[in-house]
Design a protein around this nucleic acid. Structure first.
Length: 737
RNA sequence: GAGCCCGUAGCUCAGUUGGUUAGAGCGCUUCAUUGACAUUGAAGAGGUCAGAGGUUCGAGUCCUCUCGGGCUCACCA
């Protein structure tokens, strides 16, 4: 044995040996009574691994290796995600570099291009996961858009439809005009910003020299407004109810109505209603049956109704409107110190426009209630510093889920519209010579295009809210066109625990569902974990997992969030190369705690590299410098064995309680400071037996294997060569009892 | 406005259902070392466990409040 442990030559060899041996696939053993299954959170197929991935891989691999050694039938099912909007966004950036845009392609061609692009890169993530030592069952590897997965996702949609848990509705949705798609409420982020508050004067009809002043940050859609509102209990203003004012842009008459939602304390206590572009106003408009006029279109431009402003972008329109109002003397004042919070796209940071759009929604209440019950009755457990309470809060306040996305890269919603029944459908498509045609279906057909031609070049289809549709996984007939919207990425990943297992028939599903652990970062608790609970229970009748382990964010040495702009990003593969995967893994988990962030830096990796080396050299001493026939004295031997058992028990208990950071710390400390610093030294004096010390080494090597799999296996192989151990591989050796 | 988490050694953090002298890594001081390992060993300095009150035979750990830091949700015309 070398005097230094060399991870570079050792790790790839050992990984190959493990994989070839079939150790990663679930096996019946003589001890096996139960299964232990973890579904790997699928990383984006074309993303290189970052430190967060390394964290989840390490935590899950520890649990998996532990349970495999316990003798459970252990399955860790890996895969990758198509990551709809993320991937399409990256791909469009690439197109832009080539001076192309998605609008130059029909959706089928575009889909295929993204597919090829993703395939090119998808092996990178897998290779990197292997580098970290992930002992996942690659023979069951699943990609979110695998045909058999998609089939089940569609089937779930159909079930939701049959159970009346699905509806198509025209509602205000969070729309990003830059990304060209809507988002669920969860995907919107808010930023504080300074927004000028305009005090706009509305002339009273009964006396146009008198004005009602309204404060607004959004004057540009005023032309589409038809009503103002005051609070009925507002004594200062309720005399206005029923009176009329003139729209300052169009001079149309506007009635002042009463609604409790108005805060008399805010602004002037009078509010303008813009139902098509504000969630509150939309509610009020529905309640009072007010007209809803679209002022801004999906491109983020003013609609035709805007007259002279039509076609202007929101920002330009605002400037223009404010100018005009000022000229008319209808701006009383502008408060430019006003701060509010503005919704922005989590992806591109551009402002979110609440826009009226027909979308598919899932009714969440019936899905959420069983989960709340199961949470209350402790049918599953959340490890993660109070995140069970956060989950509860989410479940209690969840709003219906918009699952429509106006992007190509994803699973197309299995909904069909008859072109004869719905002549008002608007389609955009490319002709065979790449001309873009946009118009309602009736006029397009009259121009002589066939449904087939439209379908072949189809980019986008917009069916009005009253359109009839058929839910079906295949075309109901020749005059049908399929919805062009795709599912929210999370709609398919919500079904990951069972779609993966059902992929190859029901056998895996029967054996491994429900799974034992869902391990992921707390940041995607509402996006993913909550929805897996909902969809898993709904589709299969059983919770998809009984334990949720949430790890924290990995931060830098100073506890700061890692970000490209700060330049403090740690690349796990660089660390693995420099210090070894074992060091990377140990540094990530040692003293980590579920649900709490973890700081790591170069000194930590270095320290854990030293640990690998310590392990190697302690083993070298036992294997090469120790007289194994040395007897030692009975009492010392006995104490040694007792303490060893105690340590095993503690680490086992820690792992059973998901105290992974503590288990790592205990094994580290006991090995280095008890076994090496004390017991090896005692052995040198002759008091501790050689046989006992060797046994102790074997126990520690096994206990440490889940955390530092490579160096421990390397030592095992040395012992195997010297015929000191019975099994070929440590990875499948029994856990010390 | 509501909720969640954190506050322990210079720094980053452990400390499981309350139980003897409060731990680790890095850093610091002194010493050792051709015999497993300098990617080492030994010894040491450094903590009124944010503060106050309470429960208890006993509190870093449980309860209440205060202060400080972080995060999330909701509303913001």
């Amino acid at each position: 044995m070398d005097s230094h442990y060399d991870h570079i030559s050792t790790e790839p060899k050992l990984y190959e040996t493990w994989e070839k041996s079939g150790a990663f696939s679930p096996k019946k053993t003589d001890k096996s009574a139960k299964t232990f299954t973890i579904m790997m959170p699928p990383p984006n197929a074309n993303d290189p691994l970052h430190i967060g991935h390394a964290m989840f891989l390490t935590v899950e691999d520890i649990l998996i290796r532990y349970h495999r050694m316990l003798g459970d039938i252990t399955l860790w099912l890996p895969g990758t995600d198509h990551a709809g909007i993320e991937t399409q966004f990256v791909f469009e950036k690439k197109l832009k570099k080539k001076n192309q845009s998605r609008f130059e392609f029909d959706r089928e061609t575009l889909y295929k291009m993204i597919w090829d692009y993703v395939q090119e890169n998808s092996s990178v993530a897998v290779e990197q996961m292997k580098k970290i030592g992930a002992s996942a069952d690659w023979t069951r590897f699943t990609f979110m858009l695998d045909e058999k997965v998609v089939k089940q996702v569609l089937a779930s949609f159909i079930k939701l439809h049959q159970d009346s848990l699905l509806y198509r509705d025209e509602q205000l949705v969070n729309y990003c005009t830059q990304c060209g798609t809507s988002f669920s409420d969860l995907e919107v982020v808010y930023v504080d910003q300074n927004s000028p508050l305009y005090y706009v004067k509305y002339p009273l009809v009964e006396n146009p020299r008198e004005f009602i002043t309204v404060a607004t940050v959004r004057p540009e859609p005023i032309f589409a407004d038809t009503h103002l509102a005051v609070n009925p209990d507002d004594k200062k203003h309720n005399y206005l109810i029923g009176k009329k004012v003139l729209n300052p842009l169009t001079n149309e008459e506007m009635e002042i109505i009463a609604d409790e939602f108005v805060d008399p304390e805010f602004g002037t206590g009078i509010v303008k209603l813009t139902p098509a572009h504000d969630a509150n106003d939309f509610q009020v408009a529905k309640k009072h049956n007010l007209p809803i006029h679209q002022a801004i279109n999906l491109e983020g431009k003013i609609t035709a109704k805007g007259g002279k402003y039509a076609g202007l972008r929101v920002k330009a329109a605002r400037e223009s409107v404010v100018n005009d109002l000022q000229e008319k003397g209808l701006i009383e004042k502008i408060d430019d110190k006003y701060n509010n919070r503005v919704a922005v796209c989590y992806r591109c940071q551009k402002p979110i426009e609440p826009l009226l759009l027909p979308q598919f929604f899932v009714k969440v209440k019936p899905l959420v209630e069983p989960i709340l019950n199961d949470l209350k009755n402790e049918k599953f457990h959340v490890y993660g510093a109070g995140h069970d309470k956060i989950l509860k809060h989410w479940l209690e306040n969840l709003r219906d889920w918009n699952i429509s996305r106006q992007i190509v890269w994803g699973i197309r919603i299995p909904v069909w519209y008859s072109v004869t029944e719905n002549p008002d459908i608007v389609v955009s498509f490319l002709t065979t010579d790449k001309n873009k045609i946009t118009g309602n279906i009736k006029s397009v057909l009259e121009q002589g295009f066939t449904v087939e031609q439209i379908n072949n070049g189809l980019q986008e289809l917009r069916a009005p809210i009253q359109a009839n549709f058929v839910v079906s996984t295949s075309s109901p007939g020749v005059d049908y066109l399929q919805e062009t919207d795709t599912f929210d990425t999370w709609f398919s990943s919500a079904q990951w625990p069972f779609t993966t297992l059902k992929k190859n028939g029901d056998e895996d599903f029967k054996q491994f569902y429900p799974t034992q652990v869902m391990e992921t970062g707390y940041d995607i608790l509402p996006f993913w974990v909550m929805r897996m609970l909902m969809m898993g229970k709904y589709i299969t009748g059983e919770l998809p997992f009984s334990n949720i382990y949430l790890h924290g964010l990995v931060r830098d040495q100073k506890g700061q969030k890692m970000s490209k702009s700060k330049g403090n990003v740690v690349n796990p593969l660089v660390i693995a190369e420099k210090y070894g995967s074992d060091a990377l893994r140990m540094a990530l988990v040692i003293r980590s705690s579920a649900g709490l962030d973890k700081s790591v830096g170069e000194p930590d990796f270095k320290a854990m590299r030293n640990f690998s080396n310590k392990l190697w050299n302690a083993s070298r001493f036992v294997l090469e410098h120790l007289d194994l026939s040395q007897e030692g004295d009975v009492k010392t031997n006995e104490n040694f064995i007792n303490k060893l058992n105690e340590i095993s028990k503690t680490i086992t208990k820690n792992l059973n309680n998901f105290q992974i950071g503590l288990a790592a710390e205990t094994s580290y400390n006991e090995f280095w400071h008890w076994f090496c610093d004390e017991q090896i030294e005692i052995t040198k004096t002759g008091k501790l037996g050689g046989k006992e010390l060797l046994h102790g080494l074997k126990v520690f090597i096994a206990l440490l294997h889940p955390f530092v799999p490579f160096v421990t296996e390397a030592v095992w192989q040395e012992m195997r060569q010297k015929q000191l151990v019975e099994t070929d591989l440590l990875i499948t050796t029994s856990w010390p009892s």
